[in-house]
């Protein structure tokens, strides 16, 4: 058993080295497919980053009446924090709101003069609420509509911002769907390309397979070298793809900053290297072995 395994391994290696045309064709296609798989992984990462960034920029503010006591505000804050949709609640004092307002409009003299004319802080304290996802704001705003809170809440800006939030919600859902469809489509094409390439290389070996059958080789003795060849192609393609992507992500990452500020492609690649290499190995070896087994089936009928 051990000798047979050793021979199959050696035979697989020799097949890979000597059958240069089919090995290089399979290797080339596998590197392309792995690159596509890796790029799809990046696309998923970039789209998640983009969605998180977009969602980060959204929040709603609940303006509190000046008559609301500190206890009422604290209670409301705690109640809000206990809602499953709420990620974070920040209490903004009237003074802090004014500071931010002045900072924001420091270039606008008319606004600053108006503030001076008013003579006192016209702004209300507020609770800024961030949800886990953009489509959860409607539930939070419904909670804030509760009549029992009318004595402390002056207003909720969700309704002013609802169109923007809804558009963002549609946009993020759209991005997620598009990325899913692209992944599915490109993945399917990649699988078909690998399967057909391996089918062609095995088709070109059909005479060899027939000879092996005629001289009494068992099916596993025939399949073995093809499977080993598939594994070698998978491992080598992983190595080549990883080596190519190191400089590529570094170079493309710099260019990408213009389109997706904050998304550092190279760091994303380096941080997920183990996952990416595992994904590539799984794709390469899995596709190589399964395609070989499927393609060999028709030539191994006794």
């Amino acid at each position: 058993m051990y000798i047979a395994f050793q021979r199959v391994m050696r035979s697989g290696w020799e097949k890979f080295v000597r059958d240069k045309s089919s090995s290089s064709a399979a290797l080339f296609v596998m590197v392309i497919v792995m690159s596509v798989a890796t790029m799809l992984f990046f696309l998923q990462g970039a789209s998640s980053f983009m969605i998180v960034s977009l969602e980060e920029s959204v929040d709603i503010s609940t303006y509190l009446k000046n008559t609301a006591t500190q206890e009422e505000i604290t209670l409301l804050k705690e109640e809000l924090e206990s809602l499953p949709e709420v990620r974070e609640v920040t209490y903004v004092l009237r003074e802090e709101a004014l500071e931010s307002f002045v900072e924001l409009h420091k270039e606008d003299e008319v606004i600053l003069e108006s503030l001076e004319i008013v003579g006192q802080n016209p702004l209300l304290a507020s609770l800024n609420i961030k949800a886990f996802s953009v489509n959860q704001y409607i539930a939070i705003s419904e909670f804030l509509q509760n009549k029992s809170l009318a004595s402390i809440i002056s207003g909720v800006d969700y309704f002013d911002r609802a169109p923007v939030i809804n558009r963002l919600s549609t946009l993020t859902a759209g991005i997620q769907n598009a990325v899913f469809l692209i992944t599915l489509f490109a993945g399917l094409i990649a699988i078909l390309v690998v399967f057909n390439t391996i089918r062609l290389t095995i088709y070109s070996s059909r005479d060899e397979i027939e000879i092996m059958r005629l001289v009494g080789a068992s099916n596993w003795f025939i399949r073995g070298p093809f499977i080993i060849q598939g594994v070698i192609v998978g491992v080598l393609a992983t190595l080549i793809t990883t080596l190519v992507f190191f400089p590529l992500t570094l170079f493309v990452g710099i260019k990408l900053q213009a389109f997706a500020p904050g998304f550092e492609l190279f760091s994303y690649f380096a941080n997920n290297l183990f996952l990416i290499v595992s994904l590539q190995l799984l794709t390469g070896i899995g596709l190589g072995v399964v395609s070989s087994l499927l393609a060999l089936r028709r030539y191994l009928k006794v």
């Binding site: 059958r213 005629l214 001289v215 009494g216 080789a217 068992s218 099916n219 006794v302």
Partner: peptide, 10 residues
């Protein structure tokens, strides 16, 4: 069948 074929040289 492989075992049978091993009894034959072709």
């Amino acid at each position: 069948v492989p075992e049978f074929r091993r009894k034959v040289g072709a």
